[in-house]
Amino acid sequence: MSGETPDDSEDVRSESGELAPLTTAQAASAAIEQLVELTSKPMQGATSVEPTDQGWTVEIEVLEDRRIPSSADMLALYEVEIDLDGNLLAYRRTKRYARGTADIGRGGQR
């Protein structure tokens, strides 16, 4: 273990010595970690994870505004794009809504 930093032991390397691609769970975790750092808002969790040519697109539900009662909280969906190494490429808020609002689907979005 000499010469290794704590981060080195967490890296998964292929036989060629290069970093192995992120798993779906690692991509979601990396996106959540980056969004927390940028927004400082509580994350509710990933709602979707999709691979792309450049990396991953992760949709994350975020608590935007805590209210009393909690059923009146305002939530938002953020779309986060990360590269194959888990680095942030872009993020955007795509929807804002009250907790408990029925999900009527994406409809005309996208």
Results as ranks from 00 to 15, higher is better:
G3K: 06
G3I: 09
E4H: 04
T5Y: 08
D7G: 11
D8C: 01
S9Q: 14
E10A: 12
D11P: 01
V12Q: 14
S14F: 12
E15A: 15
E15F: 15
E15I: 12
E15Y: 11
E18P: 07
E18S: 13
E18T: 14
A20L: 13
P21F: 03
P21A: 01
P21W: 00
L22T: 01
L22K: 09
L22S: 04
T23I: 06
A25H: 14
Q26T: 05
Q26M: 05
A27F: 07
A28M: 06
S29L: 10
S29H: 12
A30L: 04
A31S: 06
A31H: 00
A31E: 04
I32K: 02
E33F: 10
L35S: 00
L35M: 03
V36Y: 03
L38C: 09
T39G: 03
T39I: 06
S40W: 07
S40M: 07
P42C: 00
P42T: 04
M43S: 10
M43L: 02
Q44W: 01
Q44S: 10
G45K: 08
G45Q: 05
A46G: 06
A46Y: 06
S48Y: 02
V49W: 07
Q54V: 09
G55W: 03
W56V: 07
T57P: 05
V58R: 00
V62Y: 04
V62G: 01
V62M: 01
E64L: 13
E64W: 03
E64P: 02
E64N: 09
R66Q: 14
R67Q: 11
R67V: 00
P69C: 06
P69F: 04
S71W: 05
A72Y: 08
D73T: 04
M74R: 15
M74E: 10
M74P: 04
A76K: 05
Y78R: 00
E79A: 02
E79D: 09
E79V: 09
V80I: 01
E81S: 08
I82W: 00
D83I: 11
D83F: 06
D85C: 07
G86F: 03
L88E: 05
L89P: 03
A90I: 09
A90V: 08
Y91E: 02
R92V: 10
R93E: 15
Y97N: 04
Y97G: 05
Y97L: 07
Y97Q: 05
A98I: 08
T101Y: 00
A102P: 13
D103M: 08
D103S: 02
I104Q: 11
I104E: 13
I104S: 12
R106S: 15
G107Y: 04
G108K: 08
Q109S: 12
Q109G: 12
R110V: 12
